[in-house]
C-alpha cells in the first residue's frame, strides 16, 4: 500500500512541478511581451540581439539548408525512380523545405547557438548580481535583457528561414542538374509550378514562433538560474533541450492548424 502511495506521490510531484514551470514560463513570456510594447525601448540592444541571432547564425543555417536540399533530392530520386515519378523531385524538395525542414532545422540550429548563449549570458548576470544591479540602477531587467531578445528572435528567424528556403532549393537544384539529369529550366519550372504562397507563409509563421520560443527559453532559463557555475551550466542545457522539444511539438501543432483540415 505504502509503495503504491509513494509511486503516486512521486508522479504527483512531477506533474505539479511541470505545471509550476509551465505557469512560470507563461507568466514570464507575458511579462516579456508586455515590455516589448511599452517604452522605454532599447533599439541598440534589439539591434545587437538581432545581429547575434540572424547574422552570426547564417553560416550554420545556410550549410544545413544546402545539404538538406541535396539529401532530399537524392533520397526522393532513389524512391521515386522506382515508380517513374522523377519529375516530382523538384516539387518534393521545395515543399519539404519551405513547409517543414527550413523552419525546423533552422530552429534547431539556432536553438543550439542562441538558446545556449542567452541562457549562459543572462545566467551569469544572475549569479553575479548584475540583474539585481540593473534594478538598483533604475532599469527593469525584464525590459532591458528579455524584451529586446524576444523581439529580435521573433523577427530574425523568419528572415533566416527565407534564406534557408532559397538555399535548400538551390541544394536540390545542384543535385538535380549535376547528377540526376534535369535541365536547369525544367527543375526550376517544376519547383515554382506547384509552390503555393501558403507553403512559404506557413513556414515563416512557424519560424517566427520558433524564434520567440528559442529566445524565451534561453532568457527564462538564464533569468531563473541559481547557484553559481553549475546553475548556469544547467540553465544552458535546459534552454537548448526545452526549446528543441518545443520546436518539434509546436511544429506539429502549427502544421495541424495550417494543413490539418
Amino acid at each position: 500500500m505504502t509503495l503504491i502511495l509513494n509511486v503516486l506521490a512521486a508522479i504527483g510531484r512531477g506533474v505539479l512541478g511541470a505545471c509550476r514551470v509551465l505557469g512560470a514560463v507563461v507568466l514570464f513570456a507575458l511579462e516579456g511581451v508586455s515590455h516589448i510594447l511599452r517604452p522605454p525601448f532599447y533599439p541598440r540592444l534589439i539591434g545587437r540581439a538581432f545581429v547575434e541571432i540572424a547574422y552570426f547564425s547564417l553560416p550554420v543555417v545556410a550549410l544545413t539548408a544546402v545539404f538538406t536540399g541535396m539529401v532530399l533530392a537524392l533520397q526522393s530520386y532513389s524512391g521515386f525512380s522506382r515508380f517513374g515519378a522523377e519529375s516530382a523531385i523538384a516539387n518534393v524538395v521545395v515543399l519539404s523545405i519551405t513547409r517543414e525542414l527550413g523552419p525546423v532545422l533552422a530552429g534547431l540550429m539556432v536553438a543550439g547557438r542562441i538558446g545556449a548563449a542567452f541562457a549562459a549570458e543572462i545566467g551569469t548576470m544572475r549569479v553575479t548580481d548584475q540583474i539585481d544591479a540593473l534594478t538598483t540602477l533604475s532599469t527593469n531587467p525584464m525590459k532591458y535583457l528579455v524584451a529586446p531578445r524576444l523581439l529580435a528572435g521573433t523577427i530574425a528567424m523568419p528572415l533566416l528561414v527565407v534564406i534557408a528556403d532559397i538555399l535548400g532549393v538551390m541544394g536540390g537544384w545542384l543535385i538535380g542538374t549535376a547528377q540526376l539529369g534535369f535541365t536547369s529550366a525544367s527543375y526550376l519550372t517544376s519547383t515554382l509550378n506547384f509552390l503555393q504562397p501558403m507553403d512559404v507563409i506557413s513556414g515563416l509563421v512557424k519560424a517566427a514562433v520558433f524564434g520567440f520560443v528559442i529566445t524565451l527559453m534561453g532568457c527564462y532559463s538564464g533569468y531563473t538560474s541559481r547557484g553559481g557555475a553549475q546553475g548556469v551550466g544547467a540553465a544552458t542545457t535546459t534552454a537548448v533541450v526545452s526549446s528543441s522539444i518545443l520546436i518539434l511539438a509546436l511544429d506539429y501543432v502549427l502544421t495541424a492548424a495550417f494543413f490539418g483540415s
Binding site: 549570458e121 548576470m125 553575479t128 548580481d129 548584475q130 539585481d132 544591479a133 538598483t136
Partner: peptide, 13 residues
C-alpha cells in the same frame, strides 16, 4: 538609492 554590490556586479558587456 545607490548600491555597491559585494563583487561589484559591473556589467561586463
Amino acid at each position: 538609492i545607490g548600491m555597491l554590490f559585494q563583487n561589484g556586479a559591473l556589467f561586463d558587456s
